[in-house]
Design a protein around this nucleic acid. Sequence first.
RNA 1: GGUCCCAUCGUCCAGUGGCCUAGGACACAGCCCUUUCAAGGCUGUGACACGGGUUCGAAUCCCGUUGGGACCGCCA
Length: 454
Amino acid sequence: MHKKIQHIQRQGGTNMNDSVRVRFAPSPTGALHIGGGHTALFNWLWARHTGGRFILRIEDTDRERSTKEYEETIMSGMRWLGLDWDEGPDAGGDHGPYRQSERLHLYHEYADRLVEEGKAYREGEAVIFRTPQGVRLAFDDMVYGHIEMMSDTLKDTVLLKSDGMPTYNYAVVIDDHTMGISHVIRGEDHISNTPKQLLVYDALGWEYPVFAHLPMILGKDKKKLSKRHGATSVYEYRDMGYMPDAVFNFLALLGWSAGENNEIFSRDEAAELFELTRVTRRAAVFDMEKLNFINQEHLKRLDPYTRLDLVEPFWREMGLPVDSHSREYLAQSLVVLAGRGQTAKEAAGYSDYFLTFETVKGRYDASDVSEEHKELLRRFYGELLAVPEWKASVLEDFTREWSARESVKMKDIAMPLRMGITGMKVSPGIFEVAEHLGREETRKRLAFFGFVNA
RNA sequence: GGUCCCAUCGUCCAGUGGCCUAGGACACAGCCCUUUCAAGGCUGUGACACGGGUUCGAAUCCCGUUGGGACCGCCA
């Protein structure tokens, strides 16, 4: 049943084909969801891989729920993900208009024709398609292979609603055909709609486009992704500190693979390697842990200043004094932080002590250090703060020598240093942190806790 | 209920009849480094849903069972 037809496979090869035209056709009734982003992404990949065109079409025929604001939100969501389109409501193109509400004349024109030919009838204000019985409806899906069914279980379907608007299964056919769409790439939930659309293509005497359905994205409970599963709009991921490149990368991995040892890649790399015929058929579970990992990997690969651009908003959100430090200092803070933190937000939370001493005081009070221990610390830190060169390697060497000479455990003098300057029991190498903070700031912080003589 | 689709580690993928005592990644566990891990290095646990065929040989092909899912709107 899943055999892919040979000629389809050839069509799906790597040959550049500028006649490839694909579209993403969201209805502006909500923000861009993960599922929609996934579909848009695969269309984009196919267009970019083949050198074809990616078209954005707004399916705003639901007068009740469609809004211009949602249309804007969807477009900016796509821009955030880096999915640029070649034709669309804002971009123009010679197959417009790109909003269904502006293409009503087409739907009426063809509906009239179907009524005249007796293939549809009017009932009230609506136009209804007369479904022929005993017709074998078949198509070769580039992902799912050959699919067919008899028309007998299908009922007559509404083409034009009483309000004059077309229904989905009708408008999609008119638009895909008149816009010259070569490949219809959409979610698997549309497989059972396809035969109904085939009927319309047949009635109008039109060729079918190539169909390619994509596996669904499920929540952790293996149910269709919905609000119950937490964040579903792509914007929520941005606000949580995820990188668009990472969300893109993660989404591309749901139903496709670029090879066994190639899981972290850029948009361009994905576009180059993408193959529609290699898309998986099985529904995929959205795994936040994997997204976190992929995001962290992309974060690590960024140069410090770009990473700073991502982290900075979160520092501000936390109320930290970003503007009282230089860009160089802030970027270097992230270098010291190394790859720690899976999201920009997490990285921001891990590094607040570079920007202020206030948060440190808020979470540490040195009550875990005995007076006797403080005596020792005062003796040691006094010498440490006097090393000739304030450099991590020098500080570390000095500390090691001192601890060996005085028979003190490194832990006993390094941990209080960590707690005193970061307020955290986990941090990057503490001598690196001290170096970056600077001698005077380090002295100030240690003095606050009574670890050095003021 | 009808129609259609799906079925490899917990999760995402590789695998298209012999290179498979099934490979990679995430997660998990353990070990190492060590001043800490949230950074880095290493190792490990872990799956072909089940039953029949076809074949010298099946995770791969066929049939059935079971289990999931989608669609059956004047929503898209």
